[in-house]
Amino acid sequence: MKSKNLAGGADPYRNLVNASAGAVIAWNDATGAVRSSIADKRLLRQGIETARMVRRPAKYKHRRNYEGYYWCAGSGERIWYESMTEYSALMELDHTLRLAKVVAQPFCILFGDGTRHYPDYFALHESGRQFVYDVRPEALVDERAKIQFANTREVCEQIGWGYQVLHGLTGVPRHNLEWLAGYRHPYIDPGPKIRTKILDEASESLPLARLAAALDSTQPVRYLPGIYHLLWRGDLTYDPSRPLGWHSIIERNTGG
């Protein structure tokens, strides 16, 4: 898809030449200034998580993809997405990982062979690990994309970044996570006392209906928001391959 710089132009780095025998990373820093560096471990200390978006897709009539902003519970910030596949991928990352910062369209990789690639996301995990993510439906990963992703992985390994290609969620897992995502905001956190009460009751596997009734037999729905919040956080577990409902088996996550 033809894309443009936020300030206009078909390719924000079209005039940037890679004079290196290897790969070069080019990005816009927090001030908007264009910066570039050889792809090596020095980039781990460049604060790429504060980079500005370098481009967005051109808008045109009747396009099929939907773009927007996803509010990330981990970073507490809105993150731009280009498609619903990217939306579901962001939601999955936010659910399964502890994210400190996420940047969309963070930089351009200028490969040594003259080709280039704009990864979809750069994330700083709470652990301090830095990760690069590309998002594409599995059915659309052709041979050209496989080569591009393989080259990107090699560059990330040289730098010390993790790398993963995400395909987005579909079907029941996506429906379940979209429901739980409605309870991801910190203000829904039940607090230490009630959190402990819920986790204690869920120390043994039991259906959601029984868990809710055990917490309050006269008004079982009272603690549902807190239960859903803990399911979102991963403190409680369930089978995401089956529709989430009263029958779903809930259990305390003891996996750490």
Rank of each mutant, 00 (worst) to 15 (best):
Y87N: 15
Y87L: 15
Y87T: 08
Y87R: 15
S88L: 02
L90P: 09
L90Q: 09
L90R: 05
L90T: 02
L90N: 04
M91C: 06
M91I: 01
M91F: 05
M91L: 14
M91W: 03
E92G: 03
E92N: 13
E92F: 04
L93T: 10
L93I: 08
L93R: 15
L93D: 13
L93Y: 04
D94K: 00
D94E: 00
D94T: 00
H95N: 15
H95L: 08
T96E: 14
T96I: 07
L97T: 09
L97N: 15
L97G: 06
L97A: 12
R98N: 14
R98V: 02
R98I: 00
L99G: 01
L99S: 04
L99M: 02
L99Q: 07
A100I: 01
A100S: 14
K101H: 12
K101S: 15
K101G: 04
K101V: 04
K101P: 06
V102Y: 00
V102Q: 11
V102S: 12
V102P: 05
V102R: 08
V103D: 05
V103N: 06
V103T: 09
A104G: 10
A104H: 05
A104Q: 09
Q105T: 02
Q105L: 05
F107W: 00
C108L: 05
C108A: 09
C108H: 04
I109M: 06
L110I: 03
L110S: 12
L110R: 13
L110D: 04
L110H: 15
F111T: 12
F111D: 14
G112C: 03
G112L: 02
D113G: 10
D113Y: 05
D113K: 11
D113L: 04
G114A: 07
G114M: 01
G114K: 13
T115E: 12
T115V: 01
R116Q: 15
R116T: 08
H117A: 12
H117C: 08
Y118S: 15
P119I: 02
P119M: 06
P119W: 03
D120E: 12
D120K: 08
D120N: 15
D120V: 01
D120L: 08
Y121T: 02
Y121G: 06
F122T: 05
F122M: 09
F122P: 11
F122L: 06
F122H: 15
F122W: 12
F122E: 06
A123K: 05
A123D: 00
A123N: 01
L124S: 07
L124Q: 08
L124C: 03
L124M: 05
H125S: 13
H125A: 15
H125E: 14
E126W: 00
E126T: 12
E126D: 11
E126L: 08
S127H: 03
S127W: 02
S127V: 00
S127I: 00
G128E: 04
G128M: 08
G128T: 07
R129A: 11
R129D: 13
Q130V: 01
Q130A: 06
Q130Y: 02
Q130E: 12
